[in-house]
Design a protein around this nucleic acid. Structure first.
Lengths: 213, 213
DNA sequence: CGCAAAATTGATAGTTACTGTCAAATGACA
DNA sequence: TGTCATTTGACAGTAACTATCAATTTTGCG
C-alpha cells in the first residue's frame, strides 16, 4: 500500500494517455480531456480507494461535468481498464514476420511493446494493474473489457494460419493463451521485484509444453 | 430466442434450487423462498430480458420485499449465477482417484456431474448458461462468482501434485485451463445443437497437446 | 474575417441496483 | 404459553448510469 501511495504522488506529473500530439485542435483537446480524467481518477483511487471515489469527485478534479465524464468513459471501471497500449500491441502483432509460429508471434509482440515502454509508463501500467488485482469489481469488468481485444486476436491468428476466426481450435487457443498470460501478469504483480517479461515467457512456454505439472 | 422462450414456459413447473426437502420449518421455508425468487427471476428474464427486469418486479412476483430479495441474493446477477451444482462439482473433483493427471481429474469431475443431471435439470442449466452468454453484465459477474471456486481448484490441484498453491506453475496452469474452458463454454452456447461436454473435452485435449494450430 | 453547420459540453431530471437501520412479525424451544 | 432469536418489511439514502436539450465551442467555407 505504501509503495502504491508513493507512486500516487508522481502520477500527477505524467499523463495516463501519453503524448497528446498531432491532429486538429479539437482532437488534441479531446485527448487532453481524456488524459486528465484518467489521471485524476487514478490519483483519487490510489489516495482514497476505488470504491470510495465517486464520479462526482473525479469530474470535479478534472474540471468537467459528469456528462462529459461519461462521454469519455462509459463506466467507472473503464478509467482503469482503458489502455492506449492495446491497439499498439495488436499493431505489433500484425507486423510480426509470417514465419513465426502463432505463440512465437504473440511473444515477440509483447516483448516489443514492453521494451519500448519508458520507465514512468511502465510504472503507470503497474499501478493500473495493481488496482485491477485489488478490486473485485475491476477484475470482473476486465472479463468484459478483454472480449473485444480477444476477438481481434482470434481474427489475426486465424488469418495467420489460414482458418476461419470461429474455428473452435482458434477460439480455444485464444482463451487458453489469454488466461495464462493474465495469470502470469497478476502473479508478476504480487512480487514487486519480478521480471514481467520472464513471467510471460514462462507462461507461453508452459502452454507450448501442454501445461505439465 | 424462440428456443429460449419455449423453455420459459416450462420453467414455472420446476424449481431452480431442486428439492427443498429436510430441516426444520424455518429452513424449509428459506429454501422455498430462495427457489421462488430464483424461479420468478429466471422466468421474467426470459420473458422480458435480463436488463428490462427490475428487482422490484422479481420481489413482487415472488411475494417478498426488496429487502428480503437482497438477503437471499446479494446481487441481481446472483439469481442467474447461483448454482447448487457448484459444490457438487468441487466435491466430485476432490474425490477423483489420485492416479489421474490434474487435467484428467478435472475432465472426469465435469463428466460425472453433467452425466448425473436429469433432463429437466440439464435444460434449466442450459437456460441459465444461455442467459450468461447473452448478457455482458452476467459474463463479467461470472468471473467474480467463480473466484472462490477457482481458488479452491488451484489449492486442490496443488495438493494433488504436492506443490504450494502460489507456485507459478500452478497459477499458470489454472489460468490457462479456466481461459480455455471459458472459451469452449461460450463457443458451445453459440451453437444450440452443440454438445457442451464434447467442447470441454476438446478444450482440455488441446491444452494437453500444447495448443497446436 | 465572418458566419453557418457540426460537434462538444453542461445542467437537469430520472431510473435502478444496492446499503443501512429499526420496528414488527414469526418460528424455536422450554 | 411465554420469551428469545431469527427473519421480514418499510423506509431513507447513495451512487452509477441514461436521456434530453439548450448553450458553447470548433470547424470549414465563402
Amino acid at each position: 500500500m505504501w509503495r502504491i501511495l508513493q507512486a500516487a504522488a508522481r502520477i500527477g506529473t505524467m499523463t495516463a494517455s501519453g503524448d497528446t500530439h498531432a491532429g486538429g485542435l479539437r482532437e488534441r483537446k479531446k485527448a487532453r480531456t481524456r488524459a486528465a480524467i484518467q489521471d485524476h481518477a487514478l490519483r483519487l483511487y490510489l489516495e482514497q480507494g476505488y470504491a470510495a471515489t465517486t464520479i462526482e469527485q473525479i469530474a470535479e478534479a478534472a474540471e468537467v461535468s459528469q456528462s462529459t465524464f461519461f462521454r469519455y468513459f462509459s463506466t467507472k471501471a473503464e478509467t482503469v481498464l482503458y489502455d492506449r497500449l492495446d491497439p499498439v500491441l495488436m499493431d505489433s502483432l500484425l507486423n510480426q514476420p509470417a514465419e513465426l509460429s502463432p505463440l512465437a508471434a504473440v511473444r515477440a509482440a509483447i516483448h516489443q511493446v514492453l521494451d519500448q515502454l519508458k520507465p514512468d509508463e511502465l510504472e503507470l501500467e503497474q499501478t493500473r494493474w495493481r488496482l485491477v488485482a485489488q478490486e473485485p469489481e475491476l477484475r470482473s469488468a476486465l472479463t468484459d473489457h478483454i472480449a473485444q481485444p480477444t476477438a481481434l486476436l482470434t481474427e489475426t491468428i486465424a488469418q495467420r494460419v489460414g482458418r476461419e476466426p470461429d474455428d473452435i481450435a482458434i477460439v480455444i487457443w485464444a482463451g487458453g493463451l489469454i488466461g495464462a498470460i493474465y495469470a502470469a501478469f497478476f502473479a508478476a504483480l504480487q512480487d514487486p521485484d519480478a521480471d514481467l517479461i520472464e513471467y510471460i515467457d514462462g507462461a507461453i512456454a508452459r502452454l507450448e509444453a501442454g501445461l505439465p505439472l
